[in-house]
Nucleic acid binder design. Structure first.
Lengths: 276, 276
DNA sequence: GAGTAAATGGAATATTTTTTCCATTATTCG
DNA sequence: CGAATAATGGAAAAAATATTCCATTTACTC
């Protein structure tokens, strides 16, 4: 608004928009400021909301929200929304065009790669969204919260997940033990009856993890599992099974859904402990 | 279509829809099958696309796509889209209502928690989407691909990320060393001039990681950094800096964006090596 | 404190999007 | 092979959504 040269041309990336909001929100009039603040804090809603929804949520009239978009340099809400929607779409024509330059300079088309992984991440998160999993997470948290110590097991790809869980539980003051390295099976003596186990394994499932879980299960210790598929044999030894289906890019799967799920799990365990 | 009782009432979760698609897609007529298949593979697009877009992408007329939605039990496309959009929105009225039951039974409101982390995940991924980061990732991959061995450093929260990267690089046949535990500083003798370092630290930044990176940098070894903020002191010692801003839920941050970014990085490094 | 400029909200309009309808084409079954 | 049923695509109608316009309010300047 202050600088017409800047606002005359629309931002070309989401980050541009956010930076712009950060910079200009101070000297904006009341209602436009409300738009700027709400949008800054909830920018992920632009792609899936109508102007009216954004305007209501910001506490302003739809016409004001449109004017807000225009003050950012867009022709209106639709144009801004298109930018925010672009990242979800397979076809990113604009994006592709801009990447072309990179490719010519001998780049490895990394931009496309990152876009693909981001898209896969969104997909993984969407498929994580469902009631049954919420309820399973709740029961898992309840079960694990009763344990004296939670034994964390996961090898190879899954190791990163239990590593993260171990850090979080430690920070939250929940007692846990991280099992790793070869010969984890031999450590089953250290697991007592009032403990619990959280085992993670992805397809192709780790024999070692499965056998460890089985052994512990036979001792009467409750086992809780996380995997990427319902076909995981952990379901036979687990009291409760969490599934995080991860979308793949060129044969590689980022653990996006798993890390969100287990972070939520850590907080839920703590919450469940507090309640007792 | 075959069973009117089933299709008469709309699915209430995204997973319901996907399961339904899985089950019924075989015996569907040609065009509806196209809709089912495209939607199954690209369900994340429903929230951000118009019928025409979905129809075009499926290779059918808009009217056919609407009929497809109706065959799933929805009144039309709009109703189906509302379901897919719900998970992005702060206000999940329907969802909340269903969770209420859980809460009463003494649950810890875990369902809400998981929803919050999923939403935060989407947000983190959205803010990761921008050109500059794509280009920085590309340069980082190029730089690291030239190293004899990549030294991975990250403590506490960041450890999970380097752990994952270590696994991926190993699987890809790229030489790397994972540094961990106390006294990592002493291991700097093992880092040679034609190596490179990838250091990860999140706010509040780990002194140990920063000093390690600095020391290695002084030896003339290229350092590449990943953090959650531009304020990270790693930028002074790093040749290139990657930023993954993570959204928080109740003071906790899931490493959603970081894990997507580093998974893409691993693949990009391999791609860069192949090219030389 | 009056006059001017900017900001605002609601209503009217324009545009886009969804949905229904129907004529045409394909498929199934006798 | 022909009749009946189902499926399809295009176009018209309906609905929802975005945008503009303007009267009113608010803030600022002198």
């Amino acid at each position: 608004m202050k600088d017409d040269r800047l606002s005359a041309q629309a931002p070309t990336t989401v980050t541009d928009v956010l930076n712009h909001l950060e910079a200009s929100s101070l000297r904006l009039p009341k209602r436009l400021k409300q738009c700027a603040e709400f949008t800054r804090d909830n920018f992920h809603l632009v792609a899936v909301s109508t102007v009216s929804e954004m305007a209501n949520a910001s506490g302003v009239a739809p016409s004001v929200y449109v004017r807000f978009c225009q003050s950012l340099g867009f022709s209106g809400y639709s144009e801004m929304q298109t930018l925010f929607r672009a990242q979800y779409a397979d076809q990113r024509p604009d994006y592709e065009a801009r990447i072309a330059a990179l490719r010519k300079e001998g780049g490895v088309e990394t931009g496309k790669l990152m876009g693909d992984f981001i898209e896969a991440g969104h997909k993984s998160l969407v498929s994580l969204t469902n009631m049954e999993m919420s309820e399973a997470l709740d029961r898992t948290a309840q079960g694990l919260s009763k344990a004296r110590t939670i034994h964390l097991v996961g090898l190879r790809r899954a190791f990163c997940i239990v590593t993260n869980l171990s850090y979080l539980l430690d920070k939250l003051g929940v007692s846990s033990t991280l099992h790793f390295g070869s010969g984890i099976l031999h450590s089953s003596n250290s697991i007592l009856e009032d403990d619990a186990m959280f085992a993670v394994t992805y397809s192709p499932f780790s024999e070692e993890t499965l056998r460890f879980a089985e052994e512990v299960h036979k001792k009467g210790v409750p086992v809780f599992g996380l995997s990427d598929s319902f076909a995981c044999p952990l379901k036979d030894t687990s009291q409760e099974m969490l599934i995080a289906r991860e979308d793949e890019v060129a044969g590689f799967r980022a653990l996006t859904a798993s890390i969100s799920l287990t972070t939520a799990l850590a907080v839920a365990i703590k919450a469940a402990q507090k309640q007792c």
